[in-house]
Design a protein around this nucleic acid. Structure first.
Lengths: 142, 142
DNA sequence: TATTGTTATACTCTATAACTATA
DNA sequence: TATAGTTATAGAGTATAACAATA
């Protein structure tokens, strides 16, 4: 057992993540989005030709069945659309609509501001280390 | 919107936290515990005279009603007990039993190993920065 | 036979409000 | 009246299994 729970990396990650998630969701609520929906939308915006749901699930660390639900919601909101892939008619490409790009842009700006607010306490160098460390933890364990 | 979702601190925190949490829960399952229960147990072990549920809720960032449930489960497992505080008979002090300390010690060792596995990729200095940065994010936004 | 997406289900986590007993 | 704990409930997140369409 760690000397103190406050030194436990898992605990610290969980707390920090929870705080940032809460702030992000507050910021996103103004745009009618939750964090997960925004993540799907952002990935759809990044890929000009769209992204398969299987790929989205992999990147986001979600079960494919969860992606179905999230995409359903985004489709209902008119922010993305499903297109049958020509190469493989089993796969549906999730593509951002014009409005999806507008909303994603605006929501992302607010979400970033909220998520990065706690980082003002860190130096530039610390922020880089944090980002890099989290990225490596992600790619290593994913 | 961040250039890429993969640069979003909130997203990175969420992914890293989720991975570590999953690994931690797998390690704790062998001891019949989940992460939240272990966190409560660990805090109870740290405080020789016990910790009020209100205090536990504050430190863990949980609603007091969630702590009730967690303590109920730990009591049922014989790992902690509730004691009415002499000073204020409204507050219940959560105290680890002898077995609670044994289980907490063993479970903590496994949980730490699981949680720190992804950190082997980071240098000593990076680990310190990560821990310190997460601690400051936590205390600042909490 | 294997894979993509889908539906269904159950369990955990999170958030909220209302109630009790003490102060 | 204010606070510590409790109960209840609903919504969001997570995990799993089974199924249809396509490869």
């Amino acid at each position: 057992m760690a000397k103190r729970l406050a030194d436990d990396v898992g605990f610290l990650l969980s707390r920090a993540s929870g705080q940032v998630l809460k702030a992000t969701n507050v910021a996103l609520a103004a745009h009618g989005l939750r964090a997960r929906q925004y993540a799907v939308l952002a990935l759809a915006c990044e890929a000009p030709d769209g992204s398969s749901q299987r790929h989205l699930a992999g990147v986001l660390g979600l079960d494919p069945s969860q992606v179905v639900q999230l995409v359903d919601e985004l489709v209902a909101a008119g922010l993305v659309e499903r297109r049958v892939a020509e190469a493989d008619r089993r796969t549906r490409l999730v593509v951002a609509t014009a409005e999806g790009r507008r909303v994603g842009e605006a929501a992302g700006a607010d979400a970033d501001a909220a998520a990065e607010a706690p980082l003002v306490l860190l130096s530039e160098g610390e922020r880089d280390v944090l980002r890099d460390a989290l990225t490596r933890i992600w790619t290593a364990t994913g």
